[in-house]
Design a protein around this nucleic acid. Structure first.
Length: 887
DNA sequence: TAAGTCACG
DNA sequence: ACGTACGTGACTTAC
C-alpha cells in the first residue's frame, strides 16, 4: 500500500501571502457587512489547489500563537520594527480558522513557538513514521525542512503557484542542502525577521561560503586559512552574531507539541459548515462549485428532475396549461438571428416537457400557447425568443418574467448572458452554467447523453420558476417594477421588431468603395515603405514604433505599457517632422474603413434579404444605454467625410422609400439642467439658446454686445462635455490643449455661473457614498462598490460615474420610452414606416415617401413628449435617399 | 487572450 | 501626491 500522506500548512504565512497577492483588489473582496475577505478567499484557493494535487491522510494548519516566542526572549529585536498588521487583515483571521475547521483540517498553535516550529516537529515525526509530507508556506525559510520524505511548497506567484523544494532541487538550484540553508540564513540574516547576519554578506556570498566550507562550524574551524580581507574581519568580529542568527534561523524539530500524527486524520470537508461560512462571506463562486459533484457534474443537492419528452403523440398534455408557463429555447449560437434551436422546455404547474425537435414548436398545440397573449411566458431573454420564433412563423406574445432582464435591472453588474451564472448570483444553485454542461471554446458541444441535456434544460426552467417571485419582490422594493413592466419589457419586443426588420445595405456600393480604397491603400503603403526605407507591417504598433522612434529617431511623446504609443494624438504632435506621419494617419483612417466597415459589413449582410440584422444588447451597459453587436450599427462613421460615405450603402429596402431620422438635440445637457435644477442652465434652454454659445458667454463673462468667438464656443462645449463626464482639470486641459491651470479656471468659472450644477455634483457623490448606488429618472440603478475605496484612483472613478450615470442613464430612459411610444403610434396611425436603428439619441426609420410629411410631425412629437422635464426637449429631423444623404 | 487603436453617442 | 474625462464594439497584432 502507498505510504500515508501528511499535509502541513504554515497558516500565518499563507494568509499574509493571500492578503498581499490580492491587495490590489482589496475593495472588491468584501462581504455584505463590509468585512474584507480577500485573504480568506486566497486561502481557500490555495487549499483547493493543494487538495486537488495532494491527497492527505492527515492534515494540519499551524498558526503563530502570539507576538512573543522563545526567539524574542533570546533576542528581543526578533521580528521587531514590523509594520502593524492592517486591520483589513486581522479581521480575517477568525474566519480563516473557521474555514480550516470546516474544511476538515486540524489547526494548532503553541505558546512561545512559531508555526514553523510546530511544522518542523511534526514533519520530523512523520518522517520517522514513514509518512510522505507536504509542507505549504509562503516563507522560503521552511525549505530547511525538506527531506527525502518531505517536500516544501513555497508560493511563488499568487497563492496557487508554488515552487517545490526537495533536497535534490535545492542542491541543483542553490547548491546547498536543506540543513546548510540554516547556516546560509545565519550569515545573510533576514530583514523581515529583523536579524542581521554578518555585515556585508548577502545571499550570494552566504551560499558561496557555505558551499565551500560545508557549514558555519566548518567555516569558523577554517577561518584562519581564509585570505585576509574585510569580509574575513567581519566574519571573525561577528562570530557571536552569526551563531545567534543560526539559532534564530533554525526551525525547532523538538517543540513540545501536545498533539501527534494520530490526532491529525483528514476526513474531508463538512459541507453544511462550509456553506454557512461561504454564505456569510458572500463567496458565491465557491458556493456554486460546491453544489456540483466534480466527477458526475450533477448538482449534489437537487432531487431527481422529472420530465416528459414531447412527441407528436403526447402534445395533448399541454392542454392543461392555463395562464402561465415557463418557456425556454436552447439556442447554442449567441446570434439568435441564425442560431439553430437545439431544444426547448415548457413548464407549468410542476410538469416539465422537453424536446430536441424544433419542428414541434409549429404544432398547433404549442404555437397557440406561444401566440396567446393571455398565457404569460416566464423565460430568459424574451427578445431572443421573439426573433428565433419569428423565423418559424410564430409570433410570441405574453411576456411575463424575463429572468435576464430582471437580473440586469436589479444589478447592472450582473450582465452575464448565462442563466446558471445569474441564478448563482441570486443564491440559487440547483442549476449549472452552460459552460459547465457544454464546455467552452472549441470543445463546446451539446452533451451526447440526451438525459443530461434535458436535465439541464429543466433545471434552467426550474431556476426561472423559483427565482420569479423573490426577484419580482426585489424589483418592487427598489421601486423598479414600472421600469420593468412599462419600459424594459415592452422595449424588448420593440427591439426584436427592429432587429427582425433589419436595414438594407447595398453590397455593390460597399464593394465599389472597397476596390477604390484598396488602390489607395496600396499607394499609401508604398509611400510609407519608401519613407521608412523598408517594408514592415504598418498595422503593427510594435513595428511602427520601431520605425518611427528607433530608426527615424522621432521624439517619443507617450509610452504604453508595452512600448511606444503611436495613437492619433501622438502622431498629430509629430506632424510636420516627417512626411511619413501624414501618410500613416491617412493609411490608418482608410484601413479602418476598409476592414471594419467594408469587409466587416459585407460579411454580415444576409444573402436572403440583403439586410443587416444587428442585435441590441439590452442588458449590458452600466448606464442603461443599448449596445449593438454583430455588427455594431451604432458606430458607423459620420465625423470624417471619407468614412461618412459608408452611409451611402444604407438604403431603404423598397423603391420609393426614404430614410428618415430624428435626433434629440443636447439631450444630456437638458437632463443635466433638469436634475440639477440649475436656474441659469434651465433658463438658457427655455430661451432656446445655443447652449455652448451661452455657456461661453457666461464663463468668459462677455458683455451683451460682445461676440462669442468660435474658439470660445469650442472651449465652452468641451467644458459642457466635461461636466457631464465628471470633470477634472487635467482631463479638460488634455482635451482642449490648455494648461491645467486654465482648465481649472474654466471649471471654477462654470461652477460660479451654474451653482446648481456644482451643488448637484457634491450631493450626488455624497448620496452615492451613503447608499452605495445612484439612480436615473426611472429608478434604473447602478451600484458603485468602489465609491468608498481607499484607492484614490478607484474612488475618483466611482465619483465621476456617480455624476455621469444619472445623466447618461436618464437620457437612455427617455429615448427608450420614446421608442415604445413610437412603436404604438406607428401602429395606431397604420403607417408602413419602420423603426430600424437607435443610436443613443437618434432614431432611424425607413418609410414610403408619402408618409414622410406625417413622420416629420409625429416622430418629434412622440420623442419630445416622452417625459416631462423642467426644460423642453428638442428634436431635429432629416430625410434622404440613403443614410448618407440625410438633410 | 490582452493590448492598442479607432469608430460612434 | 495620487492619475484622470462618460458609455460602447470591432479589428489587428503579439503573446
Amino acid at each position: 500500500m502507498a505510504e500515508k500522506q501528511l499535509l502541513l500548512i504554515d497558516g500565518n504565512s499563507i494568509v499574509f501571502r493571500a492578503f498581499y497577492a490580492m491587495h490590489t483588489q482589496i475593495d472588491r473582496f468584501t462581504n455584505q457587512d463590509g468585512l474584507h475577505t480577500a485573504a480568506i478567499y486566497g486561502f481557500k484557493l490555495m487549499l483547493d489547489h493543494v487538495l486537488d494535487n495532494f491527497k492527505p491522510d492527515a492534515a494540519l494548519v499551524a498558526f503563530d500563537a502570539g507576538k512573543t516566542t522563545f526567539r524574542t526572549a533570546k533576542y528581543h529585536d526578533y521580528k521587531a520594527g514590523r509594520a502593524k498588521t492592517p486591520e483589513e487583515l486581522t479581521e480575517q483571521f477568525p474566519y480563516v480558522r473557521q474555514l480550516v475547521e470546516a474544511s476538515g483540517l486540524h489547526s494548532y498553535e503553541l505558546p512561545d513557538y512559531e508555526a514553523d516550529d510546530i511544522i518542523g516537529t511534526l514533519a520530523k515525526q512523520a518522517d520517522q513514521a514513514g509518512f510522505r509530507t507536504l509542507i505549504v508556506s509562503g516563507d522560503r525559510d521552511l525549505t530547511q525542512l525538506a527531506t527525502d520524505h518531505t517536500t516544501v511548497a513555497v508560493t511563488k506567484k499568487g497563492v496557487t503557484q508554488t515552487e517545490h523544494f526537495t533536497p535534490e532541487y535545492m542542491k541543483e538550484k542553490l547548491g546547498v542542502t536543506p540543513t546548510q540553508f540554516i547556516d546560509v540564513k545565519a550569515l545573510m540574516g533576514d530583514s523581515s525577521d529583523n536579524y542581521p547576519g554578518v555585515t556585508k554578506i548577502g545571499e550570494k556570498t552566504a551560499l558561496n561560503l557555505i558551499r565551500e566550507y560545508g557549514s558555519l562550524d566548518g567555516l569558523y574551524e577554517n577561518i584562519d586559512q581564509m585570505k585576509k580581507s574585510k569580509r574575513k574581519e567581519n566574519l571573525i568580529n561577528e562570530e557571536a552574531i552569526a551563531r545567534q542568527c543560526q539559532d534564530l534561523a533554525r526551525i525547532r524539530r523538538d517543540a513540545p507539541v501536545k498533539i501527534g500524527l494520530a490526532d491529525l486524520a483528514y476526513e474531508g470537508p463538512q459541507q453544511e459548515k462550509l456553506i454557512d461560512l461561504f454564505e456569510k462571506l458572500n463567496f458565491k463562486s465557491f458556493l456554486a462549485k460546491m453544489q456540483v459533484a466534480p466527477d458526475t457534474h450533477q448538482p449534489v443537492v437537487s432531487e431527481q428532475v422529472q420530465f416528459t419528452e414531447l412527441t407528436t403523440d403526447n402534445l395533448a398534455e399541454l392542454k392543461q396549461i392555463k395562464d402561465q408557463m415557463v418557456f425556454l429555447l436552447e439556442l447554442p449560437d449567441p446570434n439568435y438571428h441564425v442560431s439553430a434551436v437545439a431544444g426547448f422546455v415548457i413548464g407549468s404547474q410542476g410538469h416539465w416537457w422537453v424536446s430536441q425537435d424544433p419542428e414541434l414548436l409549429s404544432a398547433p398545440e404549442i404555437k397557440e400557447l406561444l401566440e396567446n397573449p393571455k398565457i404569460k411566458k416566464d423565460t430568459f431573454n424574451a427578445k431572443a425568443h421573439y426573433v428565433a420564433l419569428h423565423r418559424q412563423g410564430i409570433e410570441l406574445h405574453g411576456n411575463g418574467f424575463d429572468f435576464l432582464l430582471v437580473s440586469y435591472l436589479l444589478n447592472t453588474n450582473d450582465n452575464s448572458n448565462d442563466l446558471g451564472q445569474l441564478a448563482h448570483e441570486h443564491n440559487y444553485y440547483q442549476v449549472q452554467s452552460d459552460e459547465e454542461v457544454y464546455g467552452k471554446g472549441k470543445s463546446r458541444h451539446l452533451p451526447d447523453d440526451r438525459s443530461v441535456f434535458f436535465t439541464h434544460l429543466v433545471q434552467k426552467g426550474m431556476a426561472i420558476e423559483q427565482l420569479k417571485h423573490p426577484l419580482t419582490d426585489q424589483l418592487h422594493e427598489n421601486e423598479q417594477w414600472p421600469l420593468y413592466t412599462d419600459i424594459e419589457r415592452p422595449l424588448s419586443h420593440v427591439l426584436a421588431k427592429m432587429e427582425i426588420a433589419g436595414v438594407h445595405v447595398d453590397a455593390t456600393t460597399l464593394k465599389e468603395m472597397g476596390s477604390k480604397l484598396k488602390e489607395r491603400l496600396a499607394e499609401l503603403e508604398q509611400a510609407i515603405y519608401n519613407e521608412a526605407g523598408e517594408e514592415f507591417n504598418i498595422n503593427s504598433t510594435k513595428q511602427l514604433g520601431t520605425i518611427l522612434f528607433e530608426k527615424m529617431k522621432l521624439p517619443v511623446i507617450k509610452k504604453t505599457k508595452t512600448g511606444y504609443s503611436t495613437s492619433v494624438e501622438v502622431l498629430e504632435k509629430l506632424q510636420g517632422r516627417a512626411p511619413i506621419i501624414d501618410n500613416i494617419l491617412v493609411y490608418r483612417q482608410i484601413s479602418k474603413i476598409q476592414s471594419t466597415y467594408i469587409t466587416g459589413l459585407l460579411k454580415v449582410i444576409h444573402s436572403s434579404d440583403q439586410k443587416i440584422h444587428t442585435r441590441y444588447l439590452q442588458t449590458l451597459t452600466q448606464t442603461g444605454r443599448l449596445s449593438s453587436v454583430d455588427p455594431n450599427l451604432q458606430n458607423i462613421p459620420v465625423r470624417l467625410e471619407e468614412g461618412r460615405k459608408i452611409r451611402r450603402a444604407f438604403k431603404p429596402s423598397q423603391p420609393g422609400w426614404k430614410i428618415f431620422s430624428s435626433d434629440y438635440s443636447q439631450v444630456e445637457l437638458r437632463v443635466l439642467a433638469h436634475v440639477t435644477g440649475d436656474r441659469n442652465l434651465q433658463q438658457d434652454f427655455i430661451d432656446g439658446k445655443d447652449i455652448h454659445e451661452s455657456t461661453a458667454r457666461r464663463i468668459f463673462h462677455l458683455l451683451p454686445g460682445e461676440k462669442v468667438t468660435p474658439n470660445m464656443r469650442r472651449q465652452a462645449k468641451a467644458v459642457n462635455f466635461g461636466i457631464v463626464y465628471g470633470i477634472s482639470d487635467y482631463g479638460l486641459s488634455q482635451n482642449i490643449h490648455v494648461t491645467r491651470k486654465q482648465a481649472h479656471e474654466f471649471i471654477q468659472s462654470y461652477f460660479k455661473e451654474f451653482p446648481g450644477v456644482q451643488e448637484y455634483i457634491e450631493n450626488i457623490v455624497k448620496l452615492a457614498k451613503k447608499q452605495g448606488y445612484v439612480e436615473t429618472l426611472t429608478h434604473r440603478r447602478r451600484y458603485l462598490p468602489e465609491i468608498n475605496s481607499k484607492n484614490f484612483s478607484r474612488r475618483s472613478f466611482a465619483e465621476r460615474t456617480a455624476m455621469n450615470t444619472p445623466i447618461q442613464g436618464s437620457a437612455a430612459d427617455i429615448i427608450k420610452i420614446a421608442m415604445i411610444n413610437m412603436n404604438e403610434q406607428l401602429q395606431k396611425a397604420g403607417l408602413k414606416a419602420k423603426m430600424l436603428l437607435q443610436i443613443h439619441d437618434e432614431l432611424i426609420f425607413e418609410a414610403p415617401e408619402e408618409e414622410i410629411d406625417q413622420l416629420r410631425e409625429l416622430v418629434p412629437k412622440v420623442m419630445d413628449s416622452a417625459v416631462k422635464l423642467d426644460v423642453p426637449l428638442k428634436v431635429e429631423s432629416k430625410v434622404g435617399d440613403t443614410w448618407y444623404d440625410l438633410k
